[in-house]
Design a protein around this nucleic acid. Structure first.
Lengths: 333, 333
DNA sequence: CACTTTTCCGCAAACGTTTGCAGAAAAAGC
DNA sequence: GCTTTTTCTGCAAACGTTTGCGGAAAAGTG
């Protein structure tokens, strides 16, 4: 049960392997009739090219590397799904690594990608990632690179994002419009650009409406559920109860949501709550959470599209795509 | 910015590439001193072996292929996470495909894996998959194969599963113990063994307690949320309201959950509901859903462990691992 | 018909490894 | 000192492609 090779075809037809190779890649040097003959027998022999041999020769593969902080996170898994979809259609395959929110591991993942001679890589960075030096290694080797959602500063690569600042601004403005005044913000790590953007959106919306930004109402932490839980917990212990909470993302919102429930407070009666991303969960809790819809699948698929385009067309100018996000109003506000 | 090769090292040290190769793979033929010298310069030159060249030579890679129906499904993404974890530790990388619950695409995915000369593959099959002929192609090529959760009949390969029959039996027995009598079952496609097992568990638990199994209360459909929604919808329209619903999985349970809520019925007052898998969501809806905890991450990691073991130790006897599932009682029953 | 141009194909090297085999150098045996 | 054994290293082929170059055959030109 061995694979048929170009050489096998050549032998059977008593011609040279190079002719077979050229015929199969539709090289103009080969006569049409010969091409046909070769194609037919190739099909008959169930020939399929050996991608490894080809990769070795041209030192470039047809796989694209994907590095995300956590596969099982709703947002990432559906983004990956989007990537796989366009990769599949374009004849690429995906090799997947997760950094586990760990900078060192992210560095190693990048190395793994380089060793595997991937054609390009798509990354969403770690919460810990401050420097982008390991990404420079990719650029030095001219390996196309696309970031999505979580992008680092100072790396000259394409990006697929939403307008975090504007979305946050709009979201908070909406809260203010509904009459909430003491609005807290549970933000993420300041290293992550998306967190800073959302934070800025919050601040500016408050300022615009001349509402005070109270220090105790602005808390930063991680991006996990527990962080939201703990932030809310702190507020409750300190008896500083806000009108509303604008969380940096859905897990944080859900964490706060749980703590509020445990405290016997009502949503949105006592505290309104707003998330960010439109994870599946937000529509199912009671009351369902108002959130900002982040088109995860679409972000993944566009990231893959841009990547493949740069791989194949050899476009070099980095490109930034800003996808639309939409406020989803539900019962929690 | 080229990669250093074995030849570069050889040249610098004025020895032959073969010696370098052997030294680096710790071959006993090479003198210790020479090995040391080679290792030092290899490190100094930032040498890293070219996996593609090696793969071509030994016609075997160090990547493992993963095929799942849907990446974004909670259960699968966390299983993948588990696989990635052990793959990472063992020096393997993962190439990922999703079949989108489509048989033909699954077949193509398997082919892709073969072309890429993966060292082994892990699969959870499609709802549509009735025949396992495409998996035979893997076995014929002696490519190790491990199924998890959704396993096909008649393919001689390792499997990682839970005891679906017993878990379902226990779950339904628990419902009966709580006093529910008119228990409906929303089952999945009969092609999938797990669905049959859970269905049988349901039937036998009912029979054991001498409860009638009413035809109209046993419905089959897909595994998605909408299927649960529609099944519940049908029951409501026909005015056949059960005491309790045992759903084949969590999405189906959640679908039913939503329809019940829309009908203004209370959970568990009017209808109790029980899911299967312990997806993240089930703990967050209100009331939280009773369900069977299926250790997704663990299933993924053991699948990967078994696979790597068979790859490296060349064990050929297929192995079946049954992981423990646990009933999680929450507010919905 | 003799020359030039075009068309088509094959030779051989290359990509970076691994590995069987041969053989030089060193050590051991007598 | 000479043969035998052991220890170590190198040669060269192989894995399956791609591709620059050269050249034979066919076609075109005068």
């Amino acid at each position: 049960m061995k694979h048929a090779t170009i050489i096998d075809i050549a032998k059977k037809l008593r011609i040279s392997p190079s002719t077979v190779s050229r015929a199969l890649s539709n090289h103009p040097d080969i006569k049409l009739e010969t091409k046909e003959r070769i194609r037919r027998t190739a099909k008959a022999m169930l020939y399929s090219p050996n991608p490894i041999a080809k990769s070795l020769k041209i030192s470039q593969t047809t796989t694209i590397g994907v590095i995300v902080p956590e596969i099982k996170h709703d947002f990432f898994s559906s983004a990956i799904s989007g990537m796989e979809e366009v990769a599949y259609r374009s004849g690429y395959t995906i090799i997947l690594c997760q950094s586990n929110e760990n900078f060192e591991r992210e560095r190693i993942n990048v190395e793994t990608m380089i060793h595997h001679r991937v054609a390009g890589v798509i990354v969403s960075i770690t919460q810990q990632t401050k420097r982008g030096t390991h990404f420079q290694d990719l650029l030095k080797r001219k390996i196309p690179l696309v970031f999505f959602d979580r992008v680092p500063g100072g790396v000259r690569a394409s990006k697929v994002v939403i307008n975090d600042y504007q979305s946050a601004f709009d979201a908070v403005s909406y809260l203010i419009g509904r009459g909430y005044k003491k609005i807290a913000h549970f933000g993420g790590p300041r290293e992550l650009d998306i967190c800073v953007q959302r934070w800025n959106g919050y601040i500016d919306a408050m300022k615009k409406q001349r509402l005070p930004v109270l220090k105790e109402f602005v808390r930063t932490g991680g991006l996990q559920e527990q962080n939201g839980y703990l932030s809310m917990d702190a507020l409750i212990r300190e008896h500083k109860i806000p009108d509303a909470v604008f969380a940096v993302n859905d897990p944080v919102a859900v964490g706060a949501f749980q703590r509020i429930g445990e405290a016997g407070l009502r949503i949105p009666g006592d505290i309104a709550i707003m998330g960010f991303s439109n994870n599946r969960i937000t529509g199912l809790v009671d009351p369902p959470l108002t959130t900002v819809d982040q088109p995860s699948f679409l972000m993944g698929s566009t990231a893959a599209e841009i990547l493949i385009e740069t791989i194949e067309k050899r476009v070099t100018a980095p490109k930034t795509v800003i996808l639309p996000a939409k406020l989803i109003v539900r019962g929690s506000t």
